[in-house]
Design a protein around this nucleic acid. Structure first.
Lengths: 345, 345
DNA sequence: ATGATTTATGCAAACGTTTGCACAGAAAAT
DNA sequence: ATTTTCTGTGCAAACGTTTGCATAAATCAT
């Protein structure tokens, strides 16, 4: 019953050929006569031959597998990035192995070790928030395994990475609010030691400045951007600056909280207060009204990251010295009900 | 520079031992003297020896990898299941390879082929909605690779699977609505050729009957459960049965749509119309009020599926004939604002 | 002291490929 | 007719492990 799978040497025996010839046929090696090619393929089909990837991998020193480390697999953003990664990787004939760090440095180190052990041919990483020591990535470099960071990157000039232009996203969102006639625009910002949050804050400031709108400290509130933070933050902003006419939040989740507070105060969205957020979550188009938000091009980020990785891998094959390359994706502002004011008739 | 990784035979040479001895040390084989054990481990550490999984896999015929096929990787449900799968698999020393079928039969067949090629030791599958032909799973069985279905299963007595008790979930939700004093309970149902939707519908019916509440066809509306479907369905239900006092939806997404319609009609949730949904999406607790919903135990489903798979795998090792085993998870009703009526003071 | 058992190690084959090199025969060039 | 160049194929080593069997040394029982 437990009949072993057909191997290359089974084919060889049955056809009175050498294993090397069979191997060459299966790999489309040029120097093989059409006659034998046909014979081999036919028998292969007949015996339902399936190549043993492991053996090939061992011999060639490449596993045809890509490794990915993400902080977590759930949540809209990473799920979509992973989808992009998977799609392109498979298209290029690679399998994908996914690990979660759970935002934990130790876990992340383990993940990297796992992937190295599995002999992946390349690695994609989005760094955990708690990671302070980056020695595990050094080990990857030492082993000469191509690596690409995405979204959450290790800041080194020689590392390759693909990130989103958070600054531009914020700039556009705030500019849009100004174009809607808003002048007292509040900001729900994230922790400023986090790169992306800082960039969004800067984008906010510069957009104001560029349009000659005064910056007012009373209009800014920083937090960790949970929904509760949005609720609390909005309350506080309304105390500090009752006349605000718009809110730009560094994420959509906190904005949902903020919107609930506004409704409770009887303020109408978007006509009294216009709203724009960041990250275009799934729920962002389920609220009433739908939230204007900066889309992070998640899937494209995944696709781009794989493309870059594949590029590094071929460079690496050709022994070219791979210099770090950074790609910055331009976000897309999705204008929806929460900010679109119908011009007064 | 490109210094090859230390192999088992490097260790052997440097210590004047045979490769077999080294191998045995590294695998904690009992019959090795403590002295040599120590010597080997020390050098291993010093040379930063990393075992070559591929070689071991080839020799042992097992890859230490589990394969998963899901309809898609984004979306709350599968993301959480995957998290559960990953967690337990890693704990048990297995890597996980994830494939998406994109709800496409052809793609699913390719996924299975990929996983078989990668020589995974076991497979977890949630079947695509469009799959009609199940021959690819036959191939898995023929190859003697343990397989466990989860959530979306192939209906065969000898297949192992872990599913949610949708019937019970619906029954509980509707019973809860009745306990809140509702008697005209509408149902937004899904396509009845889909197993789970049918079970939810049955649970709805039986809960009514069990509590002596009359079933009324005018209170039932079937669709594909998109948000738009929820909007349209609710409109229609309000026409057909203006006096309804509750809605049980087969998913949360459609319920969000329904709630928006209710608000538009000036009906108050939960006091005029109480709401309960299914699947406990991320956004379900972001609405105003929060949605009562049946939680699907996503992570636990993933964990259970892996446990079952591992069980099958050891049985398989011991040549025991593995008979299909089905596990049914009990859902959990999460009662929130959309259905909890404050008792009239 | 002899044989029986245990303990620790080595030998060598096997897993299923890939690939540099060699080589026979045929075709082409001299 | 001899040499050169192709064309198609085979040989055998290599990738890094694991593992059944053999064996030498040490321990034990008699």
């Amino acid at each position: 019953m437990a009949t072993r799978r057909a191997s290359i040497s089974d084919l060889a025996k049955q056809l009175n050929l050498s294993v090397s010839t069979i191997s060459r046929v299966l790999n489309n090696h040029p120097a093989i006569s059409d006659a034998t090619k046909k014979r081999v393929w036919e028998l292969a089909k007949q015996l339902n031959y399936q190549p043993n990837h492991l053996a090939a991998a061992l011999r060639k020193g490449r596993s045809n597998t890509l490794g990915v480390v993400v902080p977590h697999i759930d949540g809209h953003f990473f799920a979509l990035v992973l989808k992009g990664i998977e799609t392109i990787a498979n298209l290029a004939g690679f399998n994908v192995m996914i690990c979660q760090s759970n935002e934990n440095e130790t876990h992340e180190k383990k993940n990297i070790a796992t992937l190295l052990n599995a002999q992946v041919d390349g690695i994609l990483v989005s760094v955990s928030l708690t990671t302070r020591d980056f020695s595990h990535f050094e080990e990857v470099r030492r082993r000469n395994i191509p690596l690409v960071f995405f979204d959450r990157v290790m800041e080194t000039p020689d590392a390759s990475a693909v990130v989103l232009d958070d600054y531009q996203g914020a700039y556009q969102a705030v500019s849009h609010l100004i174009e809607q006639g808003c002048t007292r625009i509040a900001h729900l910002g994230g922790p400023q030691h986090v790169n992306i949050c800082q960039n969004r804050y800067r984008g906010y400031q510069d957009a104001l400045r560029a349009h000659g709108v005064a910056y007012d400290e009373a209009l800014v509130h920083f937090s960790n951007l949970s929904m509760q933070d949005g609720l609390d933050g909005m309350e506080q902003l309304l105390q500090q600056a009752p006349k605000l006419d718009a809110v730009f939040a560094a994420n959509d989740l906190s904005l949902v909280g903020a919107m609930q507070v506004l409704k409770r105060y009887g303020l109408r969205v978007p006509n009294d207060v216009a709203l724009a957020g960041f990250s275009n979550e799934l729920f962002s188009s389920l609220t009433e009204p739908k939230l204007t938000s900066v889309d992070q091009r998640c899937e494209e980020m995944g696709r781009t990251a794989v493309h870059l990785l594949l590029e590094l891998m071929t460079q690496h094959e050709n022994e070219e010295k791979a210099v770090g390359r950074q790609i910055t994706l331009q976000p897309e502002l999705l204008i929806r009900g929460s900010s679109e004011r119908v011009p007064a008739a």
